[in-house]
Design a protein around this nucleic acid. Structure first.
Length: 226
DNA sequence: CCCTGATTCGC
DNA sequence: GCGAATCAGG
């Protein structure tokens, strides 16, 4: 493949829209992210038309010339201290989901009942031999994350999910990628919170198990008993 | 490990 | 001009 005008244009567009080099390469096809990056540089738009997120190198400290004395060091130097006006999104407070409380006991029972169908729980946490683990106690405060309500999903799927969650990678928000399951587990208000992180089902934001509880056909959702 | 962009350098 | 290999970083 070569850099036709069309391709270059798409490259420019995507790059300026903030897509990563690999994403662009994927979109274009026939090229690697290296090729994209190389082209980006040759086109001289490595700066990605982003006004500025954080000035790192101070262009000119504008230090007083100091007429006579030797200017050995330009010590303190105040930092730019530029308040990023653009960044920061107000963190949408979710519409206070209620009823998220999952009946763990019930789930457990169901899991037991469904035993045999699911994989054998042979996993064993390798870390934390037997250390004193001061698990943060959930302060029964704000609404829990949108955990599936036990009585709203297929018991079988639920059981599977509970099982799968045992092997979750427990990733932090920053560790999520396009290929990691983004299903939240635990309470965001505590340390006891992480994301599933298992490999996603192609094209979906969640792993197989979580996709099954996240996406339900309307038919099965309708008239579910409370 | 996954990923990011930056740079180098032979082609 | 091109992009694989490499580097530096998260």
């Amino acid at each position: 493949m070569s850099w036709t005008d069309e391709r270059v244009e798409l490259l420019k567009k995507m790059w300026n829209e903030g897509h990563s080099a690999s994403q662009i390469a994927k979109e274009l096809g026939g090229v690697t992210r290296n090729a994209v990056i190389g082209k980006v540089h040759r086109l001289g738009l490595s700066n990605r038309n982003a006004p500025e997120t954080e000035a790192k190198a101070e262009p000119k400290p504008v230090v007083t010339p100091d007429p006579k004395g030797a200017i050995e060091d330009v010590p303190p130097v105040q930092t730019p201290a530029s308040p990023p006006p653009s960044a920061v999104k107000p963190a949408q407070p979710k519409p206070a989901v209620e009823t998220p409380v999952v009946d763990l006991a019930k789930a457990k029972a169901e899991r037991a009942a469904a035993a045999g169908t699911t994989s054998a729980p042979e996993e064993q946490e390798e870390d934390e031999p037997e250390v004193y683990t001061p698990r943060a106690i959930i302060p029964a405060g704000q609404p829990l994350p949108p955990q599936p309500s036990a009585n709203e999903i297929d018991p079988e799927a639920l059981a599977t999910v509970r099982e799968v969650e045992k092997t979750a990678r427990k990733l932090s928000l920053l560790e999520l990628t396009e290929r990691t399951c983004k299903w939240p587990i635990g309470d965001p208000a505590t340390e006891d919170f992480w994301f599933c992180g298992l490999p996603v089902k192609a094209g979906k934001p969640y792993c197989e198990a979580h996709v099954s509880v996240a996406f339900q056909p309307m038919s099965s959702r309708r008239d579910r008993k409370r």
